[in-house]
Simulated scan of single mutants.
Amino acid sequence: MRAPIGDFTDARPAPDCLDLLTQPVADAVRSWRGSVPAEQLLYVDTDPAIADTAVFVERHGAELLDQSANCVVVAGRRGGETSLAACVVLSRTRVDVNGAVRRQLGARKASFAPMDTATGETGMEYGGITPIGLPANWPLLVDAAVADTEYVLIGSGSRRGKLIVPGKTFAELPGAVVLDGLGGS
């Protein structure tokens, strides 16, 4: 099957690729309940050496920059407590950690979570973290531009492979809050 975006000629429904996904992502796909059928979540096999957005877009086409999203783990601190959340923004933007994220989490200070915390808490690989399969108790902050994009290319939980997902899907994920301006320039 040809993917709806990018130059991927071998896109497969994610439920047919559970063995290629990390455990939390496979579990989320297996128990999928969104308004978009799980079969519309597509898996494309990609080279893990080019998982980082800039290199990936260079190889697969600049138009993907407007259709790709990054999922990052952030830590919000207030008093002596730290809470984790995930943010999804289009790849051409940066997460507004010190503004939108800090305010939404009610944190005094917010920053990107350390890599070992992000990977350890998600069960996913750095460079492949995806909002599908995150801990259900985490806030998931989604930039409105992501939810408004017809199809979005996002990590699959590992550096090998990507998921192509209808943008509206992100607004339905557990803990999702759609925010205008989460992704700044």
Results as ranks from 00 to 15, higher is better:
L105Y: 04
I50F: 14
A86V: 02
V152D: 09
G167K: 04
L84Q: 04
T169N: 03
Y43I: 00
G157I: 03
A54K: 12
R92S: 05
V55W: 05
E39T: 12
G120Y: 06
G79N: 05
G79M: 11
L153I: 07
A69M: 08
T46V: 10
E39C: 05
G133P: 00
G133E: 01
R159S: 10
G106F: 04
R78F: 01
G6V: 09
D10V: 04
T93R: 15
L64S: 09
Q104E: 14
A26P: 03
V73S: 08
V177L: 15
E39V: 11
G127H: 05
R102H: 04
A75H: 11
R102W: 03
F56I: 11
P37Y: 12
G181R: 07
A144W: 01
G123R: 01
T53H: 10
P24R: 12
L105T: 03
T169S: 14
G183W: 08
V95L: 01
E58P: 00
A69K: 12
G80R: 14
Q23S: 15
D66H: 13
D27F: 02
P114M: 05
L173A: 03
I5G: 00
P174C: 04
A38N: 06
A118T: 05
R92P: 00
S185M: 08
E39N: 04
P13Q: 10
P37S: 12
D143H: 09
P174H: 03
P48I: 07
C87H: 02
P24L: 13
R108N: 05
G99I: 02
P24F: 11
V74W: 10
E125L: 13
G106D: 04
A118H: 03
K168A: 13
E172W: 04
V178C: 06
R12V: 14
G80H: 09
A171I: 11
A144R: 15
V88G: 00
A69N: 06
I154Q: 01
S156Q: 02
P114K: 09
G120S: 12
G155C: 09
R92C: 04
S31E: 14
L134R: 08
V55L: 15
V152R: 11
A54R: 14
R94T: 00
D10W: 00
A147N: 08
F56N: 14
C71A: 06
G183M: 06
D10Q: 10
A38K: 07
D47P: 13
R77K: 15
M115F: 09
L134T: 01
V29A: 12
R92M: 02
I50C: 15
L134M: 13
G161Q: 07
W32M: 02
Y43S: 01
